[in-house]
């Protein structure tokens, strides 16, 4: 087996830690922190909403780094990382969008609006969905890895651009929590001590979950390649 015992142990430890952290985070979200004055229980969505966005951002960031590293080194392991990270990142950004919709319905009185923030996250989702389409569309493996790396970089450029749009045109109704205006959070809820504790704990938890899921996804990809290779060997012998 290609993997060292030590690495497998670290992965299993992280997996269990992620499960425990997730349970703790959910307990905190529901019991430690109280409902917010104006937004009521719906405000509790915010913890997983922002944390899952952090997860997707980390995953897509890893995909860009992997894309650059692949184009430089041509080591297929970077492509595996990029592919895995994009898949997990897509899942997390879906969570961000869906939880955001559930929050927006009672607070903004609509499931969806073309606010700059919502637009930029949709563009991000579409760009990485297109990345997956590109991968399935190219047959030659070497070319697929190369094109996927290039597209991951281009897609991230467009994501960066949409983030800049928000800074230039701050006509957003989306509450700003993190970013340049961290000193005084705008929006209708104030960040109290308990809310901050819960938020940071959730962000930490989702970071660990992202790492664990990407890692497992990479192992799945490697396993799949080994099985395919072995299959060719056996079929050639027959």
């Amino acid at each position: 087996m290609a993997y060292s015992e030590k690495r497998t142990k670290i992965l299993m430890g992280l997996t269990y830690a992620a499960a425990v952290l997730f349970v703790l985070a959910m307990l905190m979200n529901f019991f430690y922190v109280g409902p917010e004055r104006q937004q009521g229980e719906a405000q509790r969505i915010f913890y997983v909403h922002l944390s899952s966005f952090l997860g997707s951002f980390l995953a897509f960031g890893a995909a860009v780094v992997a894309g650059i590293a692949y184009l430089r080194s041509r080591n297929p392991k970077w492509d595996t990382l990029g592919h895995s990270a994009v898949e997990i990142g897509l899942g997390f950004s879906t969570i961000t969008i869906v939880t955001g919709m559930a929050w927006a319905r009672p607070i903004w009185n609509t499931w969806w609006t073309w606010d700059p923030r919502l637009t930029s996250v949709t563009i991000m989702w579409l760009a990485y969905a297109a990345y997956m389409m590109l991968r399935t569309g190219i047959e030659d493996p070497e070319r697929r890895r190369r094109f996927a790396a290039v597209y991951a970089i281009v897609a991230f450029a467009s994501v960066l651009y949409t983030i800049i749009i928000i800074r230039v045109r701050p006509d957003t109704i989306h509450p700003v929590v993190a970013g340049p205006t961290q000193a005084e959070p705008e929006g209708s809820f104030e960040v109290s001590g308990r809310i901050r504790d819960t938020l940071f704990f959730n962000m930490f938890t989702f970071t660990v979950i992202t790492v664990v899921l990407v890692w497992h996804r990479i192992r799945l990809e490697n396993f799949s390649e080994r099985v395919a290779r072995r299959k060719m060997e056996v079929l050639a012998d027959l």
Binding site: I123, L126, A129, A130, M133, L134, D140
Partner: peptide, 27 residues
């Protein structure tokens, strides 16, 4: 031009190019 030089190698290049291009060109 960059993306169309990629999509010419795809199986269904006529459909792939708009899908690749739209999200990137939306901004």
């Amino acid at each position: 031009t960059l993306l169309s030089s990629m999509s010419v190698h795809a199986r269904s290049r006529e459909t792939l190019l708009p899908i690749l291009l739209m999200p990137v060109v939306l901004p």
